[in-house]
Design a protein around this nucleic acid. Structure first.
Lengths: 124, 124
DNA sequence: GTCGTTGCAAAGCGTTTGCAGCCTA
DNA sequence: TAGGCTGCAAACGCTTTGCAACGAC
């Protein structure tokens, strides 16, 4: 069974408050502000548990350490700003997926990442 | 400057012959068939050196260890087979990139990854 | 002969796991 | 009170680095 501990609550709250995907290290720091002395192993164990419970989903970007965000969002992709390093959600899909799939292959899933400058860094 | 050793030649040839991106471990195994006793550290050191020379480029997929392929190929993306874990090149682009870019953002680059079963694993 | 390169082993670094004690239900 | 949960430290897998010997030029 799942128990409600101070540590688990701190981790859930930190993720909800952040508003953007957090890496394990960032999450550890954020959770430590709520529960002093919380261990990094507890972070990893709860990341796994909360993922299995469907509370959060991993956000994996190429060449980046994994981040985690609260689950339940609509299908979306990501825009990674090279200047401020923030990740933004983008709506919609480019389509035409089947046309680029090699013959004989079975397409089940796709990831799509845009890179460049976000609206804030374009201005700066 | 750069010297032509058996090990370096074996690594270059293994990458050229493979025809698809290789992970450091895969490359180590392939190179070992050409130069017995080649060390994993040599693989990593040459991956870095050949990358700086512009001979190869890294292929980073979300949540995956990096793979490497020979540079200079036409614009393409990748298909990752969940069964055999191999990565294949796919030609073409889905297009429509501008339509999914949020207004005000500057799009500079994009990555696109297909997931599913390759032709060999579909048959099996 | 010079000095870039190699194999080995040890060191890093992020993540996982074993364990004894703690604490939620 | 039972057994899931925690902190600690050790273990782990992948990558990097120190070092003495090797070998391309």
């Amino acid at each position: 069974m799942q128990r409600e501990t101070r540590q688990r609550r701190a981790i859930r709250e930190a993720l909800e408050v952040a508003g953007h995907p957090l890496s394990p290290r960032e999450l550890h720091e954020a959770a430590q502000a709520r529960v002093d002395g919380i261990g990094i192993a507890t972070i990893y164990r709860n990341l796994k548990a909360l993922q299995e419970d469907g509370f959060l989903v991993p956000v994996e970007l190429p060449g980046e350490p994994p981040r985690y965000e609260v689950a339940g969002k609509a299908h979306h992709h990501h825009f990674h700003c090279r200047a401020c390093d923030r990740v933004f959600e983008v709506e919609g899909c480019p389509g035409n997926l089947r046309s680029v799939t090699p013959p004989g292959f079975k397409l089940e899933r796709h990831e799509f990442v845009l890179y460049g400058l976000c609206e804030f860094c374009v201005a700066a």
